[in-house]
Simulated assay, not measured.
Amino acid sequence: MSKRESPAAQRNRAPIADVLVEELPERGVVLEIASGTGEHAVHFARTFPQFDWQPSDPDDAARASIAAYAQEAALPNLRDPVLLDASAAVWPVEQADAMVCINMVHISPWEATEGLFAGAGRILPQGVPLVLYGPYLEDDVETAPSNLAFDESLKTRDPRWGLRALSAVDALAETNGFARAKRVAMPANNIVLVYRKQ
């Protein structure tokens, strides 16, 4: 069975979609980076029929899961998943009208986040959103004990992983020509960050 399941994706897809309703442009292509199981891609493609939803993932098993969900859903606006490593200098997608990246920044080396913003700078037009979701370390917000424990567990799995300081992400965004336009508190001590190309 190629399909994987993520309880977190099933819980957070509706709250994330509520934010996307306010942030996405009227139509176009949305590139999802690190699509994982594919459950988000199916939900968002169904929720936003005016968009072509382009899932991607560097992992073969993840892309197989995305393809299995897509085949089952049979949505005309859900594209086949592509192999995309965010840290790569060249991406297989040359243009998009928005980008969404859920739970990748903390479960990947920092180079992936650097590549994410560099790639967004290459393919996104001015003013359109790059939307991130996940847990972050914020200077003015007390970090939940569950997030601190999660951070430790991530670093145990791979020392290059872990929750990122929001200040570092904001600085990286600015270096690549983006500014944070919104922060939205989400369930389970996560946040949505919306960056727009200046």
Rank of each mutant, 00 (worst) to 15 (best):
S87C: 13
S146I: 12
L24N: 04
P92R: 03
F150L: 11
Q198E: 03
S167P: 06
E72D: 15
D158A: 15
P49M: 12
E114C: 13
A70K: 04
M1K: 06
L166T: 08
S87H: 07
P49Y: 08
A73E: 13
A74H: 06
L84Y: 12
M186D: 02
P15N: 12
A149V: 08
L132V: 14
A9I: 03
L20W: 00
G177S: 11
P135S: 09
A165R: 09
A144N: 15
S153Q: 02
D151V: 05
A88Y: 10
D97C: 08
N77C: 13
P187W: 00
A61T: 11
V29D: 03
P109F: 10
G134P: 09
D57W: 01
E94M: 01
D57I: 13
H106S: 09
L193D: 03
R4P: 02
G36W: 06
H40E: 04
D85I: 04
K3N: 06
A17G: 09
N77R: 14
I33R: 03
P7W: 02
L163M: 14
A45S: 01
N147P: 09
G119P: 09
G38A: 07
R164Q: 12
S146C: 13
A96K: 06
A98G: 06
A149T: 07
Q71N: 15
A41W: 00
E174M: 12
N12M: 07
R79N: 14
A98W: 00
R11T: 05
L163K: 00
A41T: 04
D85T: 14
P135W: 01
G162M: 11
W53I: 15
A112M: 08
A149C: 03
P145C: 13
I16M: 05
S167Q: 10
A67L: 11
E152A: 11
I191D: 01
A61I: 10
P55Y: 08
A181N: 07
A171C: 10
D151F: 08
S35E: 00
Q198Y: 01
Y136F: 15
V105P: 01
V21A: 05
R196G: 06
M99G: 05
R4S: 09
L31W: 02
P49D: 13
S56H: 07
S2K: 07
T143V: 15
D57G: 14
L78C: 14
A118H: 08
P187K: 00
F178T: 11
A179C: 08
R11I: 05
L148R: 14
W91Y: 04
D60L: 14
E138P: 05
F48Q: 09
N189T: 00
W161E: 06
F44D: 06
D57Y: 12
A68M: 07
M104K: 04
G36Q: 02
A165G: 06
E72L: 15
V21Y: 00
L163V: 15
E39Q: 15
F117Q: 09
Q50N: 05
S6H: 05
A14P: 01
V141A: 14
L116T: 08
P109W: 07
A179Y: 05
V169I: 15
V42H: 04
T156P: 01
V21H: 01
G38C: 08
K182H: 10
A8Q: 00
G119H: 09
V184K: 02
C101R: 02
